[in-house]
Amino acid sequence: MKILVCISKTPDTTAKIAFTDNNTKFDAAGVQWIINPNDEYYGLVRAVELKEADPSATIHLINVGGADADAIIRKALALGGDEAIRINTESADSFGIATQIAQVARENNYDLIFLGKETIDYNGSSVGGMVAELLDLPYISLATKFELAGTTATVTREIEGGEEVCTVSLPVVISCTKGMAEQRIPNMRGIMAARTKPLKVVEPVAADTLTQVAAFSLPPAKAGVKLVDADNVQELVRLLHEEAKVI
């Protein structure tokens, strides 16, 4: 079994969000980069668990990005995975990224493609569905559980106010969310092994650009909190009813 895990690089969750170039670019000055948590905790860890259950499985990690992504790719390899592929391009939009991933997937015939449910910076939730469509594969989004028996997967996905359990034959593209797996901390052996695992750099194929960022903006600041005395909760309820008009 061949598994492809998509890894993207995002600012650390505590990074200050600011913009430069007339509010058209994210201000990366001083920003720490991490593996997108949805890719790491849910997609990557579940793939590693599947390989632990079936050591004949191989895991490829893929990232679309410049050389500055190598550090987080090595970090991902420390958690698991046999080798990594970096498509050497800064894509303009999700479709660009999906086009590159689909190209590699076509060449390698993966049985399973895992992605996080979204990146925490662009919040697009789009690459998985696009890859699935480009490859004409089934797509199960927001998966919270994934079990495999032979080539049949049983997957639980989130729906509004509940969940749905379904089965599908491999190959399939899965976007992963909370529940799939638990976060792991890489151990020393993993970190050492990651240093020598192959990280192939591949040049991109031509891709269409469907969208572009015109400008970023920040939400208006809050006016400040109105505190109500703990002995006077009726006053809070009155404010929520009469002033905020939410209840």
Partner: peptide, 11 residues
């Protein structure tokens, strides 16, 4: 974008 910490105008 940025998990609710900012907005982006996308063309």
């Amino acid at each position: 974008v940025f998990s609710g910490k900012a907005f982006a105008d996308i063309k």
